[in-house]
Amino acid sequence: MLRRIYDWCIDAAHKPYALWVMGLVSFAESSFFPVPPDVMLIPMSLARPERAWLYAVLCTITSVLGGVVGYAIGALLYDSVGHWLIELYGYGDKVEAFREGYARYGAWIILLKGLTPIPYKLVTITSGFADFNFWQFIGLSVIARGGRFFIVAILLNRYGVFIREQIEKRLGMWVGIGAGVLVLGFVIAARAF
Rank of each mutant, 00 (worst) to 15 (best):
T116H: 06
M173C: 03
L182A: 12
G147L: 03
Y6L: 04
A190F: 01
I118A: 14
G23Q: 05
Y89G: 13
A97Y: 11
L156M: 13
I118W: 03
V123D: 09
F33Q: 11
A103N: 09
K94S: 15
F33P: 14
R104K: 13
P16M: 02
G90V: 12
R4E: 15
V123Q: 05
N157R: 12
I61H: 05
W135K: 10
Y91D: 12
G114H: 05
A153H: 11
L112E: 03
F27K: 10
K94E: 14
E50I: 03
V35G: 00
S127V: 02
I86W: 04
Y120A: 10
Y91K: 08
G101N: 15
Y102F: 15
Y120R: 11
W8R: 12
R48T: 13
G114P: 14
F33S: 08
A56T: 04
Y55G: 12
F137H: 14
Y159S: 07
R99H: 13
L115R: 13
E87P: 01
V35H: 05
W8D: 09
L2E: 14
G66Q: 06
V64P: 11
Y159H: 12
T60L: 01
I125H: 05
F98E: 13
G70N: 04
G146V: 03
L140N: 11
K121L: 14
R3L: 01
R51S: 10
Q136E: 09
V57S: 04
G67W: 05
L155M: 13
A107R: 12
M22T: 08
V21H: 05
F32E: 13
L171P: 02
K169Y: 00
I143A: 14
S63E: 11
A179L: 13
W108S: 07
I42R: 01
G23M: 01
S80G: 15
F32I: 10
N133H: 15
R48C: 08
G90K: 03
I125W: 00
F33I: 04
G128Q: 12
I163C: 10
G185T: 01
I42S: 04
G172K: 06
A179P: 02
P16V: 01
G146N: 07
G172F: 09
A103H: 09
I138Y: 08
A18R: 03
E50V: 05
L85S: 06
V81G: 11
G70A: 03
W174Y: 14
S26T: 00
H14I: 00
G180T: 06
E50K: 12
K169D: 07
C59P: 01
A130K: 07
S31T: 15
I154Q: 05
V68C: 14
Y102T: 08
I5S: 13
Y105E: 15
F137T: 06
A144T: 05
I118G: 08
G70M: 01
P34L: 11
K169Q: 10
Y120D: 12
A107E: 15
G180H: 02
A18E: 07
